[in-house]
Write a protein that binds this DNA or RNA. Structure first.
Lengths: 347, 347
DNA sequence: TTGTACGCGTTATCAC
DNA sequence: GTGATAACGCGTACAA
């Protein structure tokens, strides 16, 4: 194939200097309308595309952002990627993936990756975004980032939902349905959302003036197997709970499995609720009540925040003039309670 | 932060020329062991990482490969990425994502993407890999690629499983379990695997000397909703099939939903089988019998093939000297029949 | 408003 | 075996 056209070719065809072409390509001012049009014609006719590599070398930007993750659920990762890629396409950016290596030193690995790939910024997902040590090191290393995290720890920009409120809403729904004995399955400690979801569960009990029976709380690892194990414990009580709220859908599916194994019927004998609204939750029988996070939007918004950080040369400052009370309010996106048959009589 | 060390810094510290450093970094010959060690020490002490951008500019390679996809299932995409990233890490390559745009002209969009991102090669997934027009244009454009596809169309290297044989095996399993009336739900036409899986289903009937009742074949779109619709039709017959083989798990979950809605019990009243072994299939009640593709390995292998294509400067030739009969045999990976409770009496 | 000259960090071509 | 030096394609001073 003919080697691709360069900026020089465009300049020659348009009869201008490469600098002018550069101006047009980068939408800089100080170019006459006529000249701009001539250049644009040349660009089209030559099918010219700027080389990312050259731009990265010459300029300071690589036009690449990184997505860093550590073993998230499939649908979370895919939907996040969807939102990010959508925003990237709008801004003519590329996305490079950086799955955090399993055993090794995650922090230095990530730092090395940023040094060789040189993304203009990165998006951090839980539980990495909840790792203060990591976040601090990124900051001192001058790496721009945005967290997708439930922990508004004030350590840089973040996009998230109100996990506490979401868990409270789901628990309240169960209480409103008549349940007073509700089991809860917590997530792993290194996820900030685990504690938040748990506190939402507790809050709902307080709201309703109910006593919290601590023995109905089990610990899980956000996966199917740990949900099964936790359910086994919860259902072994003499007077087991009549509802179980697992703090994510995978664990909830484990609960359902265990319930069916014991011949229980859902929701008649046991109501089950999850969190995340994975595609699975709709496909189960009965459909699983759950909390939907707008993950695609979260990815999109996080990317936008990252972009503005990149162009401004620093973290987005809260602008007290614009929104005196809570300048980062936009970063908290709304969740949605999805009620299906696993907690309600009707289909 | 201190600006990152460059090849010049390394050269200075090691007391050699930059070319020698380059030789060491790229594992080229013609460097004395002693020199090599000195350079490596300098690299470590300076924490030097070559700049991808500069390499891309100077050399012809970008050290980036692209993954092109069009709306695959979450778990397929994630697992494929896993395998690809694993291989990428081994070869010090980066992965860039190219989700094929929805409505617009997929082919020219993809071509433009390759021209601006300049990956050293791309990995094509179904149904794009089954699109002859696309594949031809990539070939004439000189873009190196590997297909992840069931269609060994001879249009370039591909990695896949024997879809026909897999579907035949699953169908045979159902027949062996005593079913003679088995419904089948096909996938969309633009996926090459759809026809292959269907022919496997037919083959199994021939193998068993059974008559094929064509009226038990429905069409689906590889999603939950179309599985429900197809099941509704199949189960509406006066003498409905006693088993349904949906050609992917999402459709199978729709079948299970519809079965439960009608008060049928699985597998007693209706056996259900799927294809893909998505995580979901394990989490359903009862567990869904399905076919497991080694997707992670497929991604890994496809990346390896792409890499060798990149270094050899052309598609991997079949080497008749090494494997006279079938030089591309390695590219057909084994599938695995996963039998769970949805088709068998035992749990 | 436009153009010139230089540098970004690496690879590649030759000499030595 | 090793080392100067010229590309690679583009951004950015600074000059015009």
């Amino acid at each position: 194939m003919a080697s691709a056209a360069t900026i020089n070719d465009v300049a020659r065809v348009a009869g201008v200097s490469i600098k002018t072409v550069s101006r047009v390509v980068n939408h800089e001012p100080n170019v006459r309308k006529l000249t701009r049009e001539r250049v644009q014609e040349a660009i089209v006719s030559l099918n010219y595309k700027p080389s990312l590599a050259a731009r990265g070398l010459a300029g300071k930007r690589s036009f690449l952002i990184g997505l860093v993750y550590d073993n998230p659920s499939d649908s979370f990762l895919v939907n996040l990627q969807r939102g990010i890629l959508q925003a990237c396409r709008e801004q003519h950016y590329g996305l490079a993936l950086c799955p955090s290596s399993e055993a090794a030193d995650q922090i230095s690995d990530l730092l090395e990756w940023t040094r060789s790939t040189q993304p203009d910024g990165i998006i951090l997902t839980p539980p990495l975004s909840d790792n203060h040590d990591l976040v601090d090191k990124l900051t001192t290393a001058g790496v721009k980032f945005v967290s997708v995290s439930s922990a508004g720890t004030g350590r840089g920009p973040a996009v998230y939902i109100d996990e506490m409120d979401a868990a409270r809403a789901m628990t309240s729904h169960l209480i409103a349905a008549g349940h007073t004995s509700i089991g809860f399955i917590k997530g792993p400690e290194d996820h900030a959302c685990s504690a938040l979801r748990y506190s939402g569960y507790c809050r709902a009990f307080e709201d309703a003036g109910l006593d919290l029976d601590g023995s109905f709380v089990e610990h899980g690892e956000f996966d199917f197997a740990s949900g099964e194990v936790a359910a086994r414990k919860l259902l072994a009580y003499e007077e087991p709970p009549t509802a179980i709220f697992a703090s994510n859908d995978d664990m909830a599916s484990g609960v359902m499995h265990e319930a069916y194994r014991r011949g229980l019927s859902i929701p008649a004998d046991l109501a089950v609720a999850g969190f995340d609204d994975t595609p699975m939750s709709r496909q189960f029988w009965p459909g699983l009540s759950t909390v939907r996070q707008p993950i695609v939007q979260i990815g999109h918004r996080a990317t936008e925040l990252l972009m503005s950080q990149i162009s401004n040369g620093g973290p987005v400052e809260n602008d007290p003039l614009v929104s005196p009370e809570n300048a980062t309010e936009n970063d908290v996106l709304p969740f949605e309670l999805i009620l299906r048959a696993s907690t309600t009589a009707e289909t």
